Amino acid sequence: MTEMEPVPHVVVIGGGTGLSVMLRGLKKKPIDITAIVTVADDGGSSGVLRDELQIPPPGDIRNVMSSLADAEPLLSQLLQYRFKQVDGLIGHPLGNLILAALSDITGDFVGAVRELSRVLAVRGRVLPAADIPIVLRAEMEDGTIVTGESKIPQAGGRIKRISIEPADVAPLPDAIEAIRRADAIVFGPGSLYTSIIPNLLVPDIASAITESNALKIYICNVMTQPGETDSYSVSDHIDAVYDHIGKPIFDYVLVNNGDIPPEVKQKYSEEGAAPVTYDPEDAERQGYQVIADELVYFHTYLRHDADKLSHHIYRLVEGWMARKR
């Protein structure tokens, strides 16, 4: 890409550890990043702070900011420091408390995210999907309704549909504007029903996505998630998104085709997880192209290879931009 060519604007949508891992690689590319992050978390430190202070849960936002930060590594490490021995603070990452304090100082959570992003020299922008906490509800296939993001995977059933409360929550205008001017929109990786789809249920976000002419890329999880995507294939993930958003949207889906060592499979099997499988015929039926590669490595847990993911995303975006010119 020459100096005179525009820098692609890439919007990433999701939450959780997977999104943060990917962004560590993507921020190295010559692109303009806007991360739109879920505000449905109600467990752990985030759940305590959202309940007691009536602010959006800060945990996923903190993780994404840490991934995109260009500040000194020690400052990013400080943001992620979790108190272990101080009564009243045990389990709280310092970054969550800083965001809570800044919310009080600036008067709103979005302002807190903006100010901390400036301090951390965040590359790009980090935006909550909404400026108030969202409550997730899952309708299970047996008709049971489960309320609360942290409770949904524990319910033990198969999820039929997810909804949010309040249903009419206002999206951030900046998030809508970012989607409208995006050259590419990347979904995931992350928990399908509790990190990715909740963003798509915020009014106007789904319509802005479906109306956008941007390249749309879905990064599928490597392993199924117990209580959430048990026995799901790649096509099951895609069908779930299409069912909630109302129409097919993806141009490309990135999947892992690398071998997972038997001992790693066994470790995950003991927790109820298995590799996500895919069938090329499903891709043809659902209208997207598959990019398959060895996208993971194992270090305590399976993680996406941020550099490989970023390479594929940037290559696809470059090709898309070239066709538009």
Score class of each variant (00 low, 15 high):
I205L: 12
P198H: 05
I36N: 10
E165M: 12
A273K: 04
Q225G: 02
L97N: 07
V113K: 07
A100S: 06
I98C: 00
I13D: 00
E228C: 11
R82F: 09
G272Q: 11
P261D: 15
L200N: 05
R82Y: 02
R82T: 05
Y252H: 14
I61W: 03
G18C: 07
S67N: 12
R315H: 12
G157P: 03
D282P: 08
V146S: 09
R325G: 04
A206R: 13
G25C: 05
Q225C: 06
M223N: 12
V64H: 11
I105N: 03
P173C: 08
G88D: 09
E281N: 12
L74M: 06
S20C: 07
L74V: 02
L53M: 14
L102D: 03
A112F: 03
G14F: 08
S163F: 11
I219C: 01
V37M: 10
P166L: 06
G148D: 13
V222Q: 03
K84D: 11
E284C: 11
L49Q: 10
G25F: 01
H92G: 09
T38R: 00
N63W: 10
P6G: 07
A40L: 02
E294P: 00
H92W: 01
R303T: 03
S310R: 00
L201A: 14
E318M: 04
V12T: 15
G15Q: 04
Y218G: 01
P57K: 11
Q54Y: 01
T38S: 13
V255D: 10
